[in-house]
């Protein structure tokens, strides 16, 4: 699969950000075999401790999460984790998050100097503190962030889109114009679970959190269909993939590659078996 700017994947199957750590757990458990790419946990300039528990809640055919971008910071990723990726067949693409465009630029500038980083996935679904805006819901901000990152790295830049917008294709076109090599979609949908026993949402804060899992697959397919129709750059399909047939659905729809997310938690061998089965289809071009 050619994603762009020198990034080629051996298999269309990837593991989605936040569901695979930095790949080390799957390595220990023998579940890396045949994967095309690993998208790491969202990585920020500074270490983040994440949100107070509870952080996850189960809902029918899915889960809600509000992890709060817990990660060790880009410096630890660049100096301690990256050397351990040497020799892996799967490409490691670092998912980048931040509060301001300047944050994204600083993380990407640091990652640009790390040879083991095969590409960057920009998670632009974080609230932009400086402008009080969510970068991922404003086409101009999304394009500006993409352009700013494009200017500081030679690595492939994949922009990960939030589905919590009226017109995802509009955001897709904006980041394509901003220089994105590909887009990945979707990130989680905004959701909430209510606890009647407590008379408040199950998860703390505002109670809203990210919905993922098989429940979102039809929604994600609709979003990917709009992006495939609107864009010339590759689209990586994500959302509720829990079997090889689910992956085939996205690929037939026109996604160049796919990512498995929540299913990695309850089917830890799925990504590897999906990659093997698609290879038998002849899907690994």
């Amino acid at each position: 699969m050619v994603i762009g700017r020198g990034l080629t994947l051996e298999s269309p199957v990837g593991a989605a950000s936040g569901t695979f750590g930095y790949g080390f757990e799957a390595e220990r458990m023998g579940n890396l075999a045949g994967l095309g790419a690993i998208f790491t946990k969202g990585t920020t300039i500074e270490p983040r401790p994440g949100n107070a528990p509870p952080r996850i809640a189960e809902v029918p055919a899915g889960m809600l999460n509000s992890i709060g971008l817990q990660n060790p910071g880009v410096e630890v990723v660049a100096t301690e984790y990256a050397p351990r990726w040497r020799g892996w067949a799967a490409k490691v693409i670092v998912n980048v998050a931040g509060s301001t465009i300047e944050d994204y630029v600083r993380v990407c500038r640091r990652l640009d100097r790390v040879p083991e980083v095969a590409g960057i996935e920009l998670n632009i679904s974080c609230p932009n503190i400086a402008h009080g805006l969510d970068l991922g819901v404003d086409p101009r901000a999304a394009a500006a962030c993409t352009r700013a990152v494009r200017a500081v790295t030679e690595k492939a830049v994949i922009v990960k889109l939030t589905p919590n917008v009226t017109d995802i294709a509009e955001i897709g076109r904006a980041v394509q114009d901003g220089g994105a090599d590909a887009v990945s979609a979707v990130n989680t949908y905004l959701g909430m679970k209510w606890s009647r026993a407590r008379g408040k949402p199950v998860l703390p804060g505002t109670g809203t959190a990210g919905l993922s899992g098989p429940a979102i697959k039809p929604l994600a397919m609709a979003a990917v269909a709009r992006l495939v129709a609107a864009l010339t750059i590759p689209v990586i399909g994500i959302g509720g993939i829990a079997s090889t047939d689910d992956a085939r659905d996205f690929l037939e729809l026109g996604a160049r590659a796919i990512q498995i997310g929540t299913a990695n938690f309850y089917l830890p061998g799925l990504a590897a078996s999906c990659a093997a089965e698609l290879r038998q289809d002849g899907g690994a071009a």
Binding site: P54, R55, I56, A57, M63, I67, Q70, N264
Partner: peptide
């Protein structure tokens, strides 16, 4: 603690 995965990737 509530667990999503049991092996360190969900951070739940």
């Amino acid at each position: 603690a509530p667990m999503g995965c049991g092996f360190g990737t969900c951070l739940g």
